[in-house]
């Protein structure tokens, strides 16, 4: 099994940390992982993205131009990454702030209203965990308990009391994700 993912959105949405939690979850179940961020100007405002690869085998290239899954959280990223999903692959996005919805017909498209859900649950900072929940519902590549272990590993200890809140966010993401197109 090899899953190649791009997660893209605005800086501050938790794009990089969501990737980190996924990567750590993979490590927790003894898989090979790589986490390759776009750094530099992207980190200083504007768009942010990270390539995460989780695999049973040794990972060769950490940079890719086609992905099994694209998780898209703003319009700029939609413009850039819709084309990079492999045919038959998955595009998961939050329609909040998206003016031009994806148009490809050869991929599976899912929506998760994560921003709205996070606001409703009053867990604004766990927005990315709602998205992660949605992704794991579509592709349960890492087990729930390993995600929690991954969370613990990537969060500094002083934030560990927030883990239950993140778990709530993950499970609500699992519930509200909906498929809008089948490949």
């Amino acid at each position: 099994m090899t899953e190649e993912i791009i997660i893209a959105g605005f800086g501050g949405q938790g794009v990089l940390s969501m990737g980190k939690i996924l990567a750590y979850s993979g490590i927790m179940q003894d898989q090979e992982v790589s986490w390759m961020p776009a750094y530099g100007p992207e980190m200083r405002g504007g768009t942010a993205n990270v390539t995460v690869i989780i695999s049973d085998e040794r990972i060769n290239s950490p940079v890719l131009n086609a992905y099994d899954t694209a998780i898209i959280l703003n319009q700029q990223s939609m413009n850039k990454f819709e084309e990079t999903v492999k045919p038959g692959g998955v595009l998961l996005y939050d329609p909040n702030g998206i003016s031009k919805h994806p148009t490809r017909t050869d991929i599976n498209i899912y929506q998760v209203e994560a921003a709205a859900e996070a606001a409703r649950l009053k867990v604004g900072k766990s927005f990315n965990m709602v998205v992660l929940g949605a992704y794991l519902k579509i592709k349960p590549i890492v087990e729930h308990e390993n995600v929690i272990k991954g969370l613990k590993k990537s969060l500094p200890e002083r934030y560990h009391h927030l883990i239950p809140m993140n778990e709530t966010a993950i499970s609500s993401g699992e519930k509200i994700v909906k498929q809008t197109q089948k490949a």
Binding site: A23, E32, V33, M36, P37, V63
Partner: peptide, 10 residues
């Protein structure tokens, strides 16, 4: 280089 320096792996 910037890629090896910035990326995370096991």
């Amino acid at each position: 280089d910037g890629a090896i320096g910035q990326m995370m792996e096991k």
